[in-house]
């Protein structure tokens, strides 16, 4: 004859932990949560590693005409899209014969930067980030990374964008 499995008393179901053990249970649960958070951080690091391995080399940047020489005045700017449509860049004529171009997307929170003729640098209006017009490096504000720079080449009377540096991707 088979005996039916004995059911635990109701009080045992309602209060599954003895009062003395409660302190252990709450600490164990917190430590479990912290350990799982630690695992999440580890997974995040692994994700960065795997993403870096999978991405490989970036495709060859396109060569596109940006502006004609003398098209914009000294201190003037022209906006263009490079290397793909929708990726806004800014060309600045800093001298009679000097041109520089950078991505217009701030490296902090992706607001559009503009050229300030007063301070002669690129300014992000969202959080007052300032970037050097010489090399795109951060002068002040919350951004920590320089602006990606567009490499320009002069062919006859035309300026061409031929690549980018400081993009965070291998060129």
């Amino acid at each position: 004859m088979q005996s039916e499995p004995t059911r635990p008393p109701l009080w045992r179901e309602e209060f599954s932990v003895f009062k003395n053990d409660e302190r252990y249970v709450s600490r164990r649960q917190l430590i479990k949560f912290l350990t799982l958070t630690s695992m999440a951080m580890f997974v995040g690091n692994i994700w960065i590693l795997v993403r870096g391995k999978l991405q490989g080399k970036a495709p060859e940047p396109p060569v596109i005409p940006v502006a004609k020489l003398g098209e914009i005045p000294v201190g003037g700017v022209k906006l263009f899209q490079y290397p793909r449509a929708g990726e806004q860049c800014i060309l600045v004529r800093t001298g009679e014969d000097a041109y520089v171009a950078y991505s217009q997307k701030c490296t902090h929170l992706s607001c559009s930067v503009f050229y300030s003729q007063d301070s002669r640098d690129l300014v992000c209006p969202c959080h007052e980030g300032h970037f050097s017009i010489r090399d795109g490096s951060v002068l002040q504000g919350p951004p920590t990374r320089p602006l990606p720079a567009v490499t320009l080449e002069r062919r006859n009377d035309q300026l061409f964008a031929i690549g980018m540096t400081n993009t965070g991707a291998e060129q």
Partner: peptide, 19 residues
């Protein structure tokens, strides 16, 4: 994101050790 991909491996190793 700054383009220094070489830090990903040591970062993952140290993070794994801490975990």
């Amino acid at each position: 994101l700054s383009g220094h991909r070489e830090v990903a491996l040591p970062g993952a190793l140290v993070s794994g050790l801490l975990f």
